[in-house]
Amino acid sequence: MTEQSDILIKIRDLSFFREARPIFDGVNLDIPRGKITGIMGPSGTGKTTLLRLIGGQLRPNTGTVEVDGRNIPTLSRDQLYHVRERMGMLFQSAALFTDIDVFENVAFPLREHTDLSDSMIHDLVLMKLEAVGLRGARRLMPHELSGGMARRVALARAIALDPDFIMYDEPFAGQDPIAMGILVKLIRLLNDALNMTSIIVSHDIDETLGVADYVYVIANNKVIGHGTPDAIRADESPRVKQFIRGLPDGLVPFHYPAEPLEDDFL
């Protein structure tokens, strides 16, 4: 790790199966350091699964997932936990701790991994909450939050430790237009000001193309296209075009794999 390569995460020949069903089949993907990378794809293609593979919560069947030169699937438990201290992840379901309030949720990683004094933690937590617009909600319990608010608290918690890189799973889901605009700005700001690397998983095409520096489109267990947002918008490959324009018919299936319709209805 002496020279820092431009690529923070390097995924090669990744295959992953759920039982016999392939989720990924020979995926290659590079996440550039210091940039915002968007990962887009239809629902159920395995975007969340990909983040879990990067975070080491799932192990690939074959292939490598290198984060900063270290192959995640081969790390020991302790090494893995060490690497994870530098990762932030915003879960699709917020995943707040339900037995403590908003403030303590955001303070949790700070208390866990730093020796900061209480007053430092207090200031840091309020700064993070202010950034997501929820400083006033600090004493609410998770069950008192709306879905969109809960995800913003989760975002504040994910950035509490100023991680080296952060994975956002559907950050825009359930946000109103104002919150959406603020989130987009916030993600950009965090990325540039703190020199983070960000991965955004989303199917909000406009927001993702708007904020990302580089975009991958996955479908049918593979990367079907990648490039800068402009390149993706102009991509002439029929599958990417179909996904970006949201056309119902085409090569990217809307349906979960199934027998032919006749077989089910006869």
């Binding site: 879960f91 379901s93 866990e112 991994h113």
Partner: peptide
Amino acid sequence: ATEQLSSLEMMGVD
């Protein structure tokens, strides 16, 4: 079920 265990893992807390 609510991914609290997963998010602990991802925060580097066993």
